[in-house]
């Protein structure tokens, strides 16, 4: 972008705006996923564990199961969900890394 014209400036601001909105969607997604992360581990596995123990799942006390099995499964799912959702966010805002090399070289 050598010649500074009006259109270039609007493009620049809209690009910055686009990035800002991308970042905010990212933060919202992080908030949701980390909420789940906290609930299954510190929530069900630790704080609520004693109360949950009155229920049972697959023959385990529920709180015990969350702490030694369940939370780990949820962790794995969370990362794959994150990876998928981010890929679609990347596409939506046009900031992904799966574009052709010509487009990439401009950034």
């Amino acid at each position: 972008m050598s010649a500074k014209s009006n259109t270039d400036e609007t493009q620049e601001t809209s690009q910055a705006d686009n990035q800002k909105r991308y970042w905010q969607s990212n933060l919202r997604l992080l908030g949701k996923l980390l909420f789940v992360w906290f609930i299954v581990s510190f929530g069900c596995g630790i704080i609520l564990a004693d109360w949950l123990d009155q229920f049972s799942i697959f023959g385990f006390k529920l709180g015990f199961w969350f702490a030694q099995q369940g939370a780990i499964y949820v962790f794995v799912v969370l990362i794959f969900v994150y990876s998928r959702q981010m890929k679609s966010l990347d596409r939506k805002f046009g900031v992904g890394d799966d574009k052709g090399p010509e487009e990439e070289s401009q950034l």
């Binding site: 992080l30 996923l33 980390l34 992360w37 581990s41 596995g45 630790i46 702490a67 939370a71 780990i72 962790f75 969370l78 990362i79 994150y82 990876s83």
Partner: peptide, 12 residues
């Protein structure tokens, strides 16, 4: 919990 949950933080 500690040695697996950390990966969520790492990845996100």
């Amino acid at each position: 919990l500690g040695w697996t949950g950390g990966y969520v933080l790492l990845a996100l």
